[in-house]
Design a protein around this nucleic acid. Structure first.
Lengths: 332, 332
DNA sequence: GCCCCTCTTTGGACCGTTCCAGAACCTGTC
DNA sequence: GACAGGTTCTGGAACGGTCCAAAGAGGGGC
């Protein structure tokens, strides 16, 4: 008992398969009685369109592939929401793939999506293989969302303005009277931009020599260790700006362990406004990337390219905002 | 410039399309020279197989659909890992869909996956529409993973043993000397089982009248509010067992706000061992569902059904373990 | 030289759709 | 009643693979 096809529906409704196809695609060139007969037959048989057959014939899938790089850090959820809202309005579906899961295969994590011939690709976060991505971009629209890695030609980039975000953080802390401020830096384009902007802002306020920058790995563990080191210095900072929320959680832990109260003894700021930062128990001052808006912009990029807009890849930056919560306070 | 097909490869290699197909599927009935010629031509043209065409012809997709219900609560990540490891070994790919994102469509969230004719379906967490799922199960293997909702016939269930987990928690707290213990309960099968088992265990230890059960909604906010209420009672509990980690975070916040130190003044336990519970700043005692193992079992269910194993749906429970961290201590 | 057998290779049917050219059917006009 | 013009409907050719029966090539035995 195979799944019913339009031919089965056609037979039951007493019409040709072409008419069934017409009805199912919502044509208005069909007499109402026939339409009803077809729809009824389809319902009775439990007919479902076969996406494979359809996309083979239509030469497109009406599907956008979304490549996530790590499901563990849920900063991308709002972005997906925004992305979905516009894509869905445009009649497109989203299919997710996790790069970390598919990594073991030794192949490109986007392969399953590309074999399915998705009409477009959104890479969320750090990108897997820039060269491969460039090749993909020759065939279908590709958007890199949420990360400002240098993109191959033809790839659009939609990301938060990390420089602006880091500046907001530094100015917030300086405004609270902090002078000796540490930054737990990250890697990649994101880490680089945030660090540079932090340093530049400190310099602009004449605090160049008060800025303490320590490299780290953007994990909780990294944030913790680096902070333990920082806070054991004789000239310990009164505020710490971590490259992301996860690292900031590590900072909180370290402070707690060393008997410092946040924010009374130490101000802490994160980045990304993840759901963790919003937990009351954490209540972390952080930077909001307006991810929902980023997702919408990514969708708009794709939709425009589908409409035939060509050209080189553009870079769009969204203005982040500072989300002031309970982990920052005036310097004692 | 359409994407190259096997016919293009065939032409370039000077062979028939059938031979190309043979080579690409790894047949050993092909002379080495021809094989090399084909592989070279494919490489030079940047050939990619077309999954739609293949699955149309093969009548299967070698793809398993995974339906997630909410990406925001990342308890399922380990489960996916386990699932993927076995499926991948079996030559199957995974495709993810988020039920929350597709909900707006007014259709079943599994539709995109079903239209793609996935060979099997894994529903992670609370299931969307039991009736619809039963229909699906008539055509392809379906596994419900991580949730013990009553499953339609033919659907396998793989979940943690909530009764055992809740018992472990209750016994742990009782063993620490706690008598007056509150449970912040949840809803659904999961909430029900954990609550009942908690109550039963308390009864078994002659503490039936010391058990305080408060219903809640499994969110941080819910955990917070309920705890504020609980802790303002004259006979306030010395320990709180929350139905999941997220609610437990709310408990921590409430305790903090009311000036109680955890674990000195109040012991708190969660459930699920999410990455949040592992954060040093939180360091929550919780129950580990061995999600990775759950994922592997779910994969095994699917693989067996693919091999032709029929029969009614089975229910498999994995034994959870207690993860004792810093949020529980002997009663003062 | 012929036949048989095994190893390679090939053309064509098929999978379930869409799309298109044209057939069939109306309706109205002369 | 013939014809034009529009509306509905239909058969067949794609789409890009897999699968299968059968053709071709090559070797060995007589």
């Amino acid at each position: 008992m195979r799944a019913p096809t339009i031919r089965d529906v056609a037979e039951r409704a007493g019409v040709s398969k072409s008419l069934v196809s017409l009805v199912l695609r919502g044509s208005d060139q069909v007499r109402p009685e026939k339409r009803d007969a077809v729809l009824r037959a389809a319902r009775e048989l439990g007919y479902r369109p076969n996406a494979a057959a359809r996309s083979l014939s239509e030469q497109r899938t009406r599907t956008v592939g979304v490549l996530l790089n790590d499901l563990r850090n849920p900063w991308f959820v709002d972005l997906l929401d925004g992305l979905n809202s516009l894509l869905h309005a445009g009649g497109l579906r989203m299919l997710l793939a996790d790069a970390r899961l598919n990594r073991r295969t030794g192949q490109d994590p986007a392969d399953p999506l590309l074999d399915l011939r998705v009409d477009g690709l959104v890479v969320v976060g750090t990108l897997p293989d820039p060269a491969a991505l460039g090749q993909v971009a020759e065939r279908i629209p590709v958007v890199l969302a949420g990360s400002r890695e240098p993109a191959p030609p033809g790839v659009d980039v939609v990301a938060g303005d990390d420089e602006r975000g880091a500046r907001l953080v530094a100015e917030h802390l300086i405004g609270l009277g902090h002078r000796r401020i540490a930054h737990i830096a990250g890697y990649g384009a994101v880490g680089e931009l945030r660090r540079r902007s932090f340093e530049a802002t400190m310099r602009r306020h004449g605090l160049a020599h008060e800025a303490l920058v320590e490299p780290s790995d953007m994990t909780e563990e990294g944030g913790y260790r680096t902070t333990v080191r920082l806070l054991s210095r004789p000239d310990r900072p009164t505020a710490v700006f971590a490259v992301n929320d996860i690292a900031a959680i590590g900072v909180l832990s370290a402070a707690e362990e060393l008997g410092l109260r946040v924010p009374r003894d130490l101000s802490v700021v994160g980045y990304d406004n993840t759901s963790i930062a919003r937990l009351r128990h954490v209540w972390l001052t952080t930077v909001d990337n307006s991810s929902h808006e980023l997702g919408r912009r990514a969708a708009r990029c794709l939709l425009e390219r589908f409409e035939g807009a060509g050209g080189a890849g553009r870079v769009q930056l969204a203005a982040p905002t500072l989300e002031i919560r309970g982990s920052t306070a005036p310097v004692p």
